[in-house]
Structure formats: structure tokens, C-alpha cells
Amino acid sequence: MHPAPSVILFSTLSGLGFGLLAWLGFGQPVVFGWTAFWFYALAYALAVGGLLASTFHLGNPKNALKAYTQWKTSWLSREAWLSVLALVFMGIFAIGEIFLGTRWSVLGWIGGLLSIATVFTTSMIYAQLKTVPRWNHPTTSVLFLLYSIAGGALLTGHGLIAAILLLIAAAIQLLAWSAGDKRFAERGSTIETATGLGFMGKVRQFEPPHTGTNYLLDEMVYVVGRKHAKTLRLFAIVLACLAPAALLALPSAGLALIGLAAVVHLIGLFAQRWLFFAEAEHVVGLYYDKR
């Protein structure tokens, strides 16, 4: 799948933003006044900035409001709903903490849970697709959630918890990569099942249907740069998980160290997300005899 920068930015930033909102909603930490202001400013910048980036992926954004209609079947529509609900609940909760010096803790809990649910709906947009076997698995959702909650813990200064969550994420990431490498073959779709011609013999592409490119090849049969995948995996797991965990485990985890850990984590997360798309193979590639 084509690793579009808008989608990478969207899913990493908004994941981090909603993770931060969840921790704030649960009162970890309890903040008031200016401190609260800066926390919420960061959380909203990440979450809303991410959501805005996602609209760059739309061909026809003027209809965006219609995306709220199909929540019964569509994970994308559910995500649209939950993200707005989470932002509204957390927004009201934030007003109390910043300006009134009060905590409407029920609102905070609801907002926090909605924030986590939003990240889950984002993950399901990918995890639901049978056409992309690498994504079509619960580990996709588990990782989205872990990265989001760990990122929130990191940004709220919960050093030890963040470090533990990042180490768990690293372990599951390794599992997801190695299981994901085999899943396309396990699901059994081949050029023979795609064409139905397997009963005659071994099938290969003789001539592509068009000489130029097309939307399908650009969007779903992205093969550029996969050869760097192994190196990038190392890079991703070290920067997203291991290095920040090590930094946070240092005894004197001050603000500067947390900031450094957050930046390193985010860079690693970009690499992880780039791989998430670039390594994902869509079954339509079978018709073009390439994945």
C-alpha cells in the first residue's frame, strides 16, 4: 500500500494526541490553570492536526460531513463520530480544569474512554480489510492502542509505565512483523485463485492490461523501497520503543529528557507507520503478478 505522508502523519499524530487526552481525562496528572492549558494545547494540536492531515487524503473533501451517516457499517464513519465526541467531552472537561479550577471527573472518564475508542476505530479501518492480509489481524488494533497509550504516558511524564508499555509494544511489534510476513501466503490467495485458471496449470502475467500506470498500481501495489524494510524495522523498534524506554528509565527523568524521549519516539513511530503501509500487500497485486 502506498505510504501517503498525509495518512502517516494522521495516524501517528492523532494516536499520540488521543493517548495524551486519555491520560488527562483519567486525571493522570490532575492539572489546573496554565499547566492544564499547555497540556491540552499539545493534545489538541496533535489530535486535531492529525485529523486535518487525514483530509488531505480525500479526493472530494467538500462532502466530509456526509461521513457521519454510515456508522452502522463503516469504521471510518465510526471514527468520525468518536473523534468528535472525544474532542467535545474532553474540551468541556478541559475548560473546567483550565479556567474554573474544577474537575468534572465523570466527563473526564467518558472523554478518556472515547479517546481510546477513537484510536481503536482508526485501527479497525485497516484491520477490517481482508484484502490486505498483513493488516487483517487483531495485532493491528493492539499495536495502535499500545502506541497511543504509551505515547500518552510518555507525554504526561509517567516514565516507568511508559517504559513498560513501550517494551510490551516492542515485543508485540516483533510478533506482528514475523506473523505478518507469512499471512499473505496463509490466506491462500494466489494468481491462480485470482484468475480461476489454476486448474489448467501455473499462471503468470503475459501482458499487463495497460502500458502506463493507474490508480490501483499507485495506491495499492506499492513496491518501492521495500528492500530497505529490514533496516527500517530495526530503526523503528529502536527509536519508537527501546531508546525512549531507556531514556525514561534513567533516574533523573526531567522535562528535557522526556522531551527528547518524545521526539525520538515520534521519529520511530513515523518509521513504524511507513513500514505498516509500504510492507502491506494488497491482493489486487496478484492480477498484475506483483505484490
Partner: peptide
């Protein structure tokens, strides 16, 4: 087409291109 936002998710969901 009057309702489509061009998100492309349906094209991702179709196995057949």
C-alpha cells in the same frame, strides 16, 4: 458521486481492483 468524499477506502476493500 454527489455523496462520495473520495476517501478511497472502498477501492482498498475490493479484492478485484
Amino acid at each position: 458521486e454527489d455523496d462520495c468524499i473520495g476517501c478511497g477506502l472502498c477501492a482498498w476493500a475490493c479484492p478485484y481492483g
